[in-house]
Nucleic acid binder design. Structure first.
Lengths: 218, 218
DNA sequence: ACAAATTTTTAGTTTTGTCTAAAAATTATA
DNA sequence: TATAATTTTTAGACAAAACTAAAAATTTGT
């Protein structure tokens, strides 16, 4: 399994959650920042290896084998992110790029021992669940902050980790995993919110509130 | 700088110590377990990038730029080996293969923080010196055990890490870094030795004694 | 010094993963 | 339901890194 194949597999895995009836080639190409023709080529190769099913023009679906492999890569990615934040003083917006590299290191023992070293963490620094050795992971019932109503309360359990600018912004607002968040006011006009984070009161845009995941507590 | 280029650079760096007047293409090919024609191709590419000087049929020498880069890779390799042994319960014969992969991860911050995390170690688990951020490393004055005479004493400061079988053998004999070793008897016939390792007395072949490095203390 | 042996290079292919441009299939629209 | 717009695939090229086979340069042996 090459590096490139692994990256495509991971991308397709992530896309499947949103498009359960066959992932379109274009979506893959976009996420991989490449051309549709390249995505077609790769999808064909992965189909030969029985990592996914592919019918021309109908999109693809990972096979069990492909899904297993993707989950393994995700497990590695999230364990490394945890290590970087917990032990090497990385901040949560810096870890992604490095973990993208580390996730491809091949060694069963390495990842087993890393997991043990970290104390078998259940979630990574962005609140995403870490699969165990058998590929099972906690499903964290999370809502987007934007969906909460006035006086609703919850705990920040995750963020959309795709944008490092966003993560830096959250740092500035002092919002991080585990914070208790209460909706003080919801502005119907632009969907902005006034929220209370632990003891701090602050205002947050609609866009930002759509990227913060909450586990409701009331 | 691709993965392959980095591996060649490292190989050439290691060969230069033994062949200071131009590294022959064949030697590179052999160490890289590839064909001479491939080595020629790569050497040409590295020469274009000014990482080494190359005149057809005359062998190559790394430039300062090439040497710098090679040392950086070696630094990463040895820091990772240290991490694997100290924190992830790897034994010294298992670390090499994994470190070969980890040494190619690109992140200044990662390696800086890893060094700090490990407490700025001076040597790796095989006793080889770890270069600092500026590329400087301790030169450890080491002799091969085979050269010692009867009643000479020393401390085990390194081993030839190329063979995992050898490292496993040393584990069985309970020889590891930092052990005090004394030559009890030297057999002229086959150059085998009877040595005392800490409190243990044992016999060791000529071949083995050529692969153990000692810092003499008497 | 000259033929033989060895080392090194060149030339031509292969594989992986990408690209552009054009063709084909699908979906949307009027 | 034709036609237009969009999506997807095919065909043909390219670059990196390897290979094989053959040619060229160097070194060795007598």
């Amino acid at each position: 399994m090459t590096l490139s194949e692994e990256n495509y597999l991971k991308a397709i895995f992530n896309l499947e959650e949103q498009t359960p009836k066959g992932v379109p080639t274009n979506a893959i190409a976009e996420l991989m920042e490449t051309k549709a023709s390249s995505a077609t080529d790769m999808v064909k190769r992965l189909a030969e290896k029985e990592l996914l099913q592919y019918k021309p023009y109908q999109g693809t679906r990972l096979t069990k084998k492909g899904k297993n492999h993707a989950v393994k890569v995700i497990r590695k990615h999230r364990l490394w992110e945890t290590f970087l934040v917990e032990n090497l003083n990385f901040s949560w917006d810096e870890v992604h790029v490095v973990a993208e590299q580390l996730e491809h290191i091949q060694s069963e023992k390495l990842i087993h021992q890393l997991d043990k070293f970290l104390g078998y963490p259940k979630t990574d620094p962005h609140g995403d669940p870490i699969p165990d050795e058998d590929g099972n992971m906690e499903t964290i019932e999370k809502k987007v902050l934007a969906e909460l109503q006035q006086n609703d309360e919850g705990i920040c359990v995750g963020v959309d980790d795709s944008s490092s600018a966003f993560l830096k912004y959250l740092d500035k607002l002092n919002i991080s995993l585990g914070n208790k968040i209460k909706v003080i006011e919801k502005e119907a006009f632009d969907n902005s919110m006034v929220i209370q984070v632990d003891e701090n009161t602050l205002s947050i845009s609609s866009l930002a509130s759509k990227n913060i995941y909450i586990r409701k507590t009331s």
